[in-house]
Amino acid sequence: MSVISKAIVILDYLVPQGSEKEISVTELSRELDMPVQSVHRILNSLSEHGFVSQNNKTKKYKLGLSIMKYGFLMWDSLMLRSIARPFMEELLRQTKETIYLSARENTEGVYIDCIESPQILRISEPIGLRLPLYIGASNRAILAHMPRSARDTILEQADWSSIPSLKPLSREVIEADLEQTQKLGYAISNGEATDGTTGIGAPIFSFENTVIGSLNCSGPSIRFTPEKIEKYSYFVKKYAEQISKELGYRSLYRVRD
C-alpha cells in the first residue's frame, strides 16, 4: 500500500461516528495493521498541513481544520450550482445564448455548470475548463471584485509573454478592464479563450461577502451587437445579483482593499 493510500485510510478511520474521535498512534497502528513508525510519520505529515491535529494533553489525534475547509469548499460549489440553475435557465430564455457558471479555484476560474444555446451556431466549452482569472469575462468579473492585494499578486505573477489567450494581453490592459468592470458590475471579453466569441460575465458573492464565482453569457461575436450587449449585460448582472442574494450576500459590489 502506498503512503498516500495509507494516509487516506488513516483519515477515513478518524472520521467521527456520531461524536468526535481521538485516537493514539498505537491504537491506529493496531486497528489498521500498520507499523507504529509508519503511522507516526504519516500523522506528522498530515499534522503539518492541518489535516489532523494532536491533543497536547492526551497526545491523541483527530481530524484537523483543513478537512473542514475542503469540505466547505465542496459544499459551496454544490450549493452554488443548485441555487444558480434556475437563474441560468431564465438567462437562457432571455438571451438564447450559452450560459456558464464559473467558480474561483485559487488563481483560476473553472466552469462548473453550463446550459447550451438552442441555436445551431453556438459556443460550447467543456465543464471543467479552467483559465487564469485575468482571461475572459467570466474570470475577470471575479478578479475585479477580489481584494486588491490578491489581484495585484495574481497580476504580478503572470507571465504575459506566454499566457493562454488568443489575443495579446498586458497587465495595463487588464487593470484598465478591471476598473471598468468594477464600475459597470460586469465584464466583457472578445475572442480571448475562443476565436470569434463574445462573453459577458457578472460576479457572484457568498454570504461571507466574498466573490466566489460568476454568471456568464457567451456566443458568436457576430450576434453580439451593441444593442444585444446592452440587453444581455443587464440580465447577466440581474441574475448574478439574485444568485448572490440567495446565497446570503448583503452588500452588492463592495470591493475590499
Rank of each mutant, 00 (worst) to 15 (best):
V173A: 13
E179D: 15
V173C: 06
L178Q: 04
K167S: 00
V173P: 07
T197E: 04
L178A: 02
D177P: 00
E175N: 09
S165A: 11
D195I: 08
T181W: 02
Y186A: 00
L178I: 07
A187S: 15
A176I: 07
E175V: 15
Y186M: 01
T181G: 11
V173N: 11
A193C: 10
N190R: 14
A158Q: 12
L184C: 06
K167H: 04
E172I: 10
Q182L: 15
G196Q: 12
A193Q: 11
T181L: 06
T181K: 03
G191L: 05
E172R: 12
L166F: 07
W160M: 07
T198F: 11
R171G: 05
D159A: 11
P164W: 04
T198A: 14
Q157T: 10
I163H: 01
D177A: 13
T194P: 02
Q180S: 14
N190G: 03
D177G: 08
A158I: 09
E172G: 03
Q182I: 09
A187V: 02
N190S: 14
Q182N: 12
S170D: 06
E179A: 13
A193T: 12
Y186E: 01
W160Q: 10
K167F: 00
S165M: 06
S189T: 12
A187Y: 06
S162P: 02
S161Y: 05
W160L: 04
E175T: 15
S170G: 06
E175G: 09
V173M: 13
I188E: 07
W160V: 03
E175D: 09
E192T: 01
G191M: 03
G191Q: 01
L178S: 05
G185T: 07
K183F: 06
S189R: 11
I174Y: 03
R171N: 05
Q157G: 12
Q182S: 13
G196N: 08
L184M: 08
L169D: 05
V173R: 14
E192H: 01
L184A: 12
T181C: 08
Q157I: 03
D177K: 11
I163W: 12
T194Q: 15
S161T: 10
A187L: 03
Q157F: 08
R171T: 02
P164D: 06
L169M: 13
T197D: 01
N190K: 15
A158S: 13
T198C: 05
D159T: 02
P164Q: 08
G196Y: 10
E175L: 13
A158P: 13
S165K: 00
S161L: 04
K167T: 05
D159P: 08
Q182G: 06
T198N: 07
D177E: 15
R171V: 10
A193E: 12
L184T: 04
A187N: 03
P164G: 07
E172T: 12
I174H: 05
I188F: 05
D159S: 14
L178V: 14
R171S: 13
S162K: 08
Y186R: 01
I163C: 00
L178T: 14
K167C: 02
G196C: 00
I163D: 04
P164M: 07
A176E: 10
L169Q: 09
L166K: 14
G185C: 04
A158L: 11
L184P: 03
I188T: 08
S170V: 10
T194I: 14
T181Q: 07
E192L: 01
L169G: 06
S170T: 15
P168I: 12
S189G: 13
A158C: 12
Q182R: 15
I174W: 02
T181N: 02
I174G: 00
D195S: 09
N190P: 00
